[in-house]
Design a protein around this nucleic acid. Sequence first.
DNA 1: CTGAAAGCGCTAACAG
DNA 2: CTGTTAGCGCTTTCAG
Lengths: 337, 337
Amino acid sequence: MKISQQAVADLAGVSRGTVDRVINNKPNVKPETRERVLAAVEKLGYSPNSNGRALALCKKQFTVTAVCPGPEVPFFSDVLAGIEAAKNELGDFNFYVDYIFTYGKTSESVIAEIDNASTQAVMIAAEDTPIIQKTVKKVTSRKIPVITFNSDISKCGRLCFVGQNLYKSGRIAASLMQNLLRGEKAKVIIVAGSQRFQAHKARIDGFIDALGEYAANIRIADVLETNDEYEKTYHALSDSLSGHSDIKGIYLASGHINGALEAILESGKKYAAVANDLSPAIEKALKDDIFDFTIYQNPFEQGYKPVMLLFDYLLKGIKPSQTIYYTDNTIITKEMI
Amino acid sequence: MKISQQAVADLAGVSRGTVDRVINNKPNVKPETRERVLAAVEKLGYSPNSNGRALALCKKQFTVTAVCPGPEVPFFSDVLAGIEAAKNELGDFNFYVDYIFTYGKTSESVIAEIDNASTQAVMIAAEDTPIIQKTVKKVTSRKIPVITFNSDISKCGRLCFVGQNLYKSGRIAASLMQNLLRGEKAKVIIVAGSQRFQAHKARIDGFIDALGEYAANIRIADVLETNDEYEKTYHALSDSLSGHSDIKGIYLASGHINGALEAILESGKKYAAVANDLSPAIEKALKDDIFDFTIYQNPFEQGYKPVMLLFDYLLKGIKPSQTIYYTDNTIITKEMI
DNA sequence: CTGAAAGCGCTAACAG
DNA sequence: CTGTTAGCGCTTTCAG
């Protein structure tokens, strides 16, 4: 485009250096001059050429530290793929990602690692506990930008959160359940992790709210707490299924997939079943018509987006425009895997 | 990164200019020198810095011509949004998009416009007729890259096609229909545009194939040809519904939405109904539980992708890596609009 | 066929 | 507080 920094400088009667200072909110500019430059920018409709900027900046080093469970957790291996993809896309810069994997580590050792990390930005997926909140707060108070992803952390001064809209995913599950149980009077079971966790509760709330609005024919027979453990999931679901002989549907808001599958198979019946996420076990269950739908929360995007957001912040000082970025909820059937 | 053009030049004992010539396959390099440079590139693992390249190239002008119906067609207004988004993202270049809108024009006048267009690249969504094929072929034979989008054109020398996987969308519709009609013996009607159009036929084939594989309980009662006209759709569906008293489901592979809605409402019954695409009428039908699902073919992406592909081709000489880019088929329920 | 030099738009370091 | 200058990595003249 025509309108370069130089054009602005000429119009404002200053040098390119000064324009740069104004554009990037750097100190040492007389308010009066700043005004003049801003006016020129406005008048010309100038916007900086990102290639030029990128080129000038590519000698700088950028480091972001990513804190999350690690590749052992299938879901997070997809998230990590997103992080790596973002990193590759930024290959023309001196851009580094340090990982702190938390899987199998004690809170203390993780916190120590975070405290010791020398980095310019942090993205973190961890439990929303007081001790974690405190640790993150220590980071943000050092003016280091932090983005939470996958699972939000409260009261910690983070820039923003990137993750699934859990309430919405519950509502979507409800619409699917309604379609599976078209009009017939039916009882369904909700399999949950633990309702004390706010995240788990959001899905259930969405599910129940939406059913209440448009599916009076569907009744919740049970909400099972499973702690996401195999044994608990299996037993709770097994018991509930044999306790109520007339269950038609199961919503797996959370819980241990194999535990649930075991209980369902053992019952010998076919239920309307909606699950969350994608894993080999879930794919197989879809193919075998044990599950009818699953709701997928783009894990790739959950890794990719925070990196890009932090990079923009570091490089251009652009703060994320939202405090919450919801990733897509996608409905998956057996035909889509 | 460290390894710049200069590093390669030094190692190969040539100048940066020569490295550039080799990298970009330009003429006037002694084969022997070329070898030497290539070896150095290999050894250093050099890959050009795209910011530097972009900066050097941003004085050049790029023009692509987009041929498609126009904003009057709701679907294409979303496609156009994708084109504009791509254009904005390329704002740092001298990049232009010329439009040739075909809506309401005769084939002759459109063809004349294409023939007269002075452009460096073309993206086109048009009918796959012999006369269009010939016109496009004339363009490609002038070494002007062409990408077809939304609807492919055969035997025309195009670079690639960007659009929906129609067969797959039919299969997905089948899986949804199966879920809506869980196990019960049921008859369904397929509403089509015209089976003579290969595009329309693909959806139907996918639907029928998938049902055949796993839903023996579902029978096709009728396949209606509607030419996508209101009257024909309305009458054909009305007649078919009253002709078979036991229809349970309707698959709107194509056809006029309002015509179909009219017929369904008039019947006074609730059917399992799967549609395609998204429009205000379809959104309302989903909200009102007249349709249960619709399958969405990311129109935005259909506009965005071809622009980017052509730009890469023009700027870097990179040919699209695939001959067909399928855009996402997304399942939509009333909770997702 | 090849090298040297200019310059794309921007930032940063140094003078003043 | 502000101007000048030297590149960032690349392409493109223009000489030779």
